Computed example of a mutant assay.
Amino acid sequence: MSLSLYNVSVPVFTRGLTILSTLLAKAEAHASETGEPLASYVEARLAPDMLTLAGQVQRASDTAKFGGARLTGASAPSFADDETTFDQLRERCSRTITYLGTLPPPAFEGSEARPVTFGGGTSKQTLPAERYVLQFALPNFFFHVTTAYDILRHKGVSVGKRDYLGPFDETSS
C-alpha cells in the first residue's frame, strides 16, 4: 500500500482527536476525584504567553479540519472557539472527527502538488499539498495535542505515554 495524502492526514487527525478526547475524560475524572474546579483545568496553561487547554484543543481541531479542507478543496465548518467545559471540548473533537469523515479518500487523489495557502497577514504561506501536510499540518496538530497532554500532566492527571499513543487497532492497514 502506498501512502496517500488521505492516509497521512484524516486517519491520523481522527486518531489524535479521539485520544485527546480520552485524555480530557481522564482529566475530568481527576478533577472530580480531587475536588478541583473543572474550570481550573480548562483554563490552565503552561506559560502566561501560551494558549489554555481549551485553546490547545481548539487549535488541534482547527488544524485537522482546515487540513482536510485544504487538501481536498472542501469548505471546513466554522466553530466559535467558545468552549468552556470538558463536555464542550470533547464535543468539538467529535464534530471535527465527524467532518473529517465526510472527506472521502478519492477527494485527496492527485492533490500532492496542489498549492495550499494558509496563515494570514505577513505569515501567509503557500506550499504544495504534500509539503503542507507533512511540514505544517501534522507537526502543528501534534504540537497542540502534546501541549494539551502536557497541561494535563502539569495539573496532576495520571496519564502517560501509553495514554498519549492510545490503543492500536490490529486489524487496520
Rank of each mutant, 00 (worst) to 15 (best):
T72V: 04
I19Y: 02
L127T: 03
P106A: 09
L165Q: 04
E91L: 13
L53D: 02
K124G: 04
L103T: 09
V157N: 07
A137T: 00
T117W: 08
S158A: 14
K161A: 06
P105C: 11
F141M: 11
A44C: 02
P139K: 02
T126M: 13
L46N: 04
L51P: 00
L3F: 00
F142W: 15
Y41L: 08
Q135I: 01
R162H: 06
N140V: 04
E28W: 06
T85D: 13
S9D: 04
D169S: 07
T18W: 05
V42T: 07
Y132K: 05
P48L: 04
R92G: 05
Y99P: 09
N7E: 11
L5I: 08
G156M: 08
V8A: 12
I97W: 10
F168H: 05
E43Q: 14
R92M: 09
P128N: 01
I97M: 12
L5T: 12
L51Y: 12
P11V: 08
H30Y: 12
S9W: 08
V159W: 00
F136K: 03
K155R: 15
G35A: 05
E91N: 14
L71T: 04
E170P: 03
T122D: 11
E112D: 15
P115R: 13
L3A: 05
D163C: 05
A74R: 14
P104E: 12
A113L: 13
L138P: 00
Q88I: 05
K161M: 13
A54C: 09
L138M: 08
F66D: 07
A27K: 10
P105D: 12
V12L: 07
T146F: 08
R59G: 00
T147R: 08
A29E: 14
L138K: 02
Q135A: 09
Q58S: 14
A107E: 01
G156K: 07
L20H: 06
A47E: 04
R131S: 02
S94V: 10
L38Y: 06
G160K: 04
E28M: 07
L152I: 06
G35F: 02
S78P: 00
I97H: 08
L53H: 05
T98V: 15
F168A: 14
L89P: 05
F13S: 01
P11R: 07
P115F: 12
R114K: 15
F141A: 08
G55N: 10
D82V: 03
V145Q: 15
L152H: 09
L24G: 12
T126G: 11
T22G: 14
D49T: 15
A27Q: 09
L5Q: 11
E170L: 06
T72H: 04
I151H: 11
A29S: 13
F118I: 11
S32D: 10
L138A: 03
V42C: 03
T84K: 15
Y132P: 01
M50C: 09
R131H: 01
L134E: 01
T96W: 08
T18A: 12
T34L: 06
R131V: 07
A64H: 04
M1E: 09
P139T: 06
E83D: 05
I97D: 12
T98C: 08
T117R: 13
